[in-house]
Simulated assay, not measured.
Amino acid sequence: MPKTEEFRCLNADCELDMFENHYTYDVPDDLSVADLRCPYCGETDTLERIEL
């Protein structure tokens, strides 16, 4: 089963509290939170993975 991860945006001006990322089997092993951007505000350095 492909992995699913949850992220939060720490940008104080962003209205998004969290989002889920659903991956395919083809996602590179070295993909990290630094490769992603907030889908609401577009920031790249304010994302934090939510550890379950």
Rank of each mutant, 00 (worst) to 15 (best):
T24G: 05
I50Y: 13
P39T: 02
D45Y: 05
P28W: 04
D17A: 08
D35P: 00
A12N: 11
P39Y: 08
M18T: 05
I50N: 15
R49A: 14
N11I: 11
L47Q: 02
V33H: 05
N21Q: 13
D35K: 03
G42K: 04
L47Y: 02
R8G: 07
C38N: 01
L52I: 12
F7C: 12
D17N: 12
L31Y: 01
C9T: 11
H22N: 11
C38W: 07
E20W: 14
V27E: 08
P28H: 08
T44S: 06
F7D: 07
D17E: 14
I50M: 14
M1Q: 11
T44I: 04
D45L: 06
K3I: 12
N21I: 15
P28R: 13
P28Y: 01
L31N: 00
M1I: 06
R49V: 08
L36K: 04
M18V: 00
L47R: 00
E6T: 14
L36E: 08
V27M: 03
L36P: 00
E43S: 14
E15C: 03
T24F: 01
E51T: 13
L31I: 04
E5K: 15
T46G: 01
L31P: 01
V33M: 10
N21T: 14
T44G: 15
E48T: 01
C9M: 01
P2K: 06
D45M: 07
T4A: 09
C41S: 05
E20D: 13
A34F: 02
C41I: 07
D17W: 09
L52T: 07
L31A: 04
R8N: 01
E43K: 04
H22P: 04
F19V: 09
Y23P: 08
D45S: 10
T46S: 09
K3G: 06
M18G: 04
C41A: 05
E5R: 15
R8C: 13
F7M: 11
Y23V: 03
D35Q: 02
D30I: 08
A34E: 15
P2N: 08
R37N: 09
R49P: 00
D29L: 04
F19M: 11
T44E: 11
